[in-house]
Write a protein that binds this DNA or RNA. Structure first.
Lengths: 220, 220
DNA sequence: GAACCGTGTATACAGGTGTTTACTTACCTC
DNA sequence: GAGGTAAGTAAACACCTGTATACACGGTTC
């Protein structure tokens, strides 16, 4: 982290700085893109904004990534190589654990956490853009669904449970973080570090547990 | 319905047609806007596109509505004056009924149905746009939440249940209709008129019923 | 028949978009 | 120190956006 340098950084370390070096600026651009697109979505923030955040020119962004869409693909595809970690959750506690994570948006040691949460916002804010859509579909199908589906057993029924869980999580993010609609708009409570509303956690926990436990019929 | 007339309509009825008249063209523009924004979102479709669909010039759109944002406000605010109708649902069947509606996107006699479904798509596709956001927040808080909260009893706990139900519904729409992610991408099955996957209906029904039935603590 | 008003159009404006080209500048190596 | 090479920039491209202004047409009413 901490790569979001401003364009004037000629202070610390060896003299090789105003030319930051290939990998460093590439990473800076990528980080700036992720941050900007998490806050505002694919259509809303242009290359000049991202470049400016990275302390760079728009032309350079395209020299490194070729295209706005390609930059987006890299920005969302690299969020977390191995997002697992939910394998440890006690099946009986699945609902409460995921409800807490979903509603607080806070870092939770047991599960994907912060990075994942940001990725969800980036996804939701960029979902309407035609250029971003195929990228996001790939991301959902190849990166976020598989671990969830694996947790539920890996078969077709598991994928349905996973889709339902993900749907609730995404919907909550839309209402709470994007539209900032009550009673889900807990953005400030997140900043204040307080816990989420207990009743909300109870409802969400019950729903998520249902998704995990409800018996299903035909296997194919 | 059936207002989406093309720009050449000089055929039926009295000679007063090429000048369609104030209310008629206003309605045509509104209908075109709703249709276009349901398909593609606020940022994606411009005034010229909407005007063209209504058989009209972009300037005229602004003459009638003043501003793109104002047009959007009218387009989403007028979806259905009294969207109730879910008061009749047997509390024990709430989950299954709403699951069927949510997953099929089809017209269901008992509940808001098609129009509501379109409004959800319009909402989700336009949610990232800063201009549309306050409009959408108002729409959710004043139009879609109240009937649901009322169904659950109208108190604070009811609003939490309603928010959870709405979150699941919106999340399912995102995965199924916007990102077209399996196993929720049932857009084609909707066109074919077939029923939704029974397992999916079962999972969603269980989750929705949990949202309705789970006992909650403290009343304030 | 002529003036008039409302409905609709054509055109231009100012600004922003992603992308490309040609150029400068700093570093590294001989 | 000179030359080469890679990092970075400036400027321009063609296009599209929402909005405002000035103009033309059609119908109605004196």
């Amino acid at each position: 982290m901490r790569i979001t340098q401003q364009h004037e950084d000629t202070s610390a370390e060896p003299p090789r700085r105003s030319r930051a070096g290939r990998e460093a600026t590439r990473a800076a651009i990528l980080a700036a893109a992720r941050q900007a697109w998490t806050e505002h979505g694919f259509d809303e923030v242009g290359l000049r904004e991202i470049a400016s955040r990275a302390g760079v020119t728009a032309a350079l962004v395209n020299r490194y990534f070729g295209t706005k869409e390609a930059l987006f693909r890299e920005a969302i595809g690299t969020e977390d190589p191995s997002p697992a970690g939910l394998a440890d959750i006690d099946p009986g506690q699945f609902g409460r654990v995921l409800a807490a994570v979903t509603l607080s948006g806070e870092h939770h040691a047991t599960v994907q956490a912060r990075t994942e949460h940001d990725a969800h916002l980036m996804l939701l804010r960029s979902a309407p853009s035609p250029a971003a859509q195929p990228v996001l579909r790939d991301y959902v199908e190849n990166t976020v669904m598989p671990p969830l589906a694996h947790y539920f057993g890996g078969d077709d029924q598991a994928r349905k449970r996973a889709a339902a869980v993900l749907a609730l999580s995404l919907g909550a993010s839309i209402l709470g973080h994007i539209l900032r609609t009550e009673p889900l708009a807990q953005a400030e409570s997140e900043a204040a570090g307080s816990e989420a509303d207990p009743d909300l956690v109870t409802v969400f926990a019950a729903m998520l547990q249902s998704a995990a436990d409800t018996p299903l019929g035909e296997s194919r």
